[in-house]
Amino acid sequence: MNKEFLSSERRRYLKEQKRRKRMILLTQVLIILLFLGLWELLAQLGVIDSFIMSSPSRIGKTLLNFQNNGLLLHISTTVAETVVGFALGTLIGTLLAVVFWWSEFLAKVSEPFLVVLNSLPKVALGPVIIIWVGAGTEAIIVMALAISTIVAVLEMLGGFLATDRELLRMARTFGASRMQSFLKIVLPYNIRTLFNSLKVNIGLSLVGVITGEFLVSKAGLGYLIVYGGQVFKLDLVMSSVIILAVLAALLYRGVLLLERLVVRRLSHTS
C-alpha cells in the first residue's frame, strides 16, 4: 500500500506493532546472552566446575575446531539419517492413513493395535531392531520410523476422517469415485493437517535417530554425545546438544518453507 494513503492513526498503529515485534526479539536475544554470560562468568570465577558443566568459551572452541574433531561428519550423518527417516516415515504413514481411510473395516481392525503401538516406548524395541536389521545405519532409521510412523498415521487418519462430510456428499452428487473424492476433496482439504503432521514428524524423526545412535552407531551427534559422556568430554556433549537444537530449528524451518510452497501452488493451479 502507498504510504500517502495511510492515516496518521494507522501509521501509529503499524509503528506500535513493529516496535512490539522488535521488543520481543530483543528480549529473546537478551535472555540468551544473559544465560551465556552468567554461565561463562560463573565458570571463570570457579563457582561451577567447567570440567563437568563446560562453558560457552570451551563450547565455542570445540565448535571452531570442527576440522579436527570431525564435527561435520557427525552432523551430516545425523542429518542424512533424519531426512531419510522423515521421508520414509511420512511416506509409510500417509500410505497407511490412506488405506485406513479407504477401508473402514481395516481401520477398525487395526485401531487397538495402533493405540498400543503408539503408547509403547519404542526404545524397548531397540535390542530387537538391532538383532533383526543389524547394528548399523539401518537400525537407526528403523528406530526413527518406529517412533514417527504411528503418530503420522494417527494424525493423518484423524484429519482424513474429519473431512467435511457435506463436501464429500457434494462430490458424490457428481458421481465421484472414492479415488476422485480422495484426490479432489480429502487430500487438499487436509493439506494443513498433513503439514502439521510433518512438523511433528521431523521432530520425532530426530528423536528416533538420536535414540538409535545412542544404541548403535559409529558416527552422528547421538554417538558424539554418548562418547563425550563416557570420556568426560563435556565440551563435546554440550556442543552436540547445541548443534542439535539448531538442527531441529532448521529442519522445522525447512518444513515450513515446503508448506508455504505447496499451499501457494495448490491455490493457484489445482
Partner: peptide, 17 residues
C-alpha cells in the same frame, strides 16, 4: 456418474482452495 441428474445441496459446498 452418468450426470443425468444435478443435485444441489443446502450448503454451497464450494471448495475454499
Amino acid at each position: 456418474a452418468s450426470g443425468g441428474i444435478g443435485y444441489m445441496l443446502q450448503r454451497d459446498n464450494l471448495l475454499e482452495w
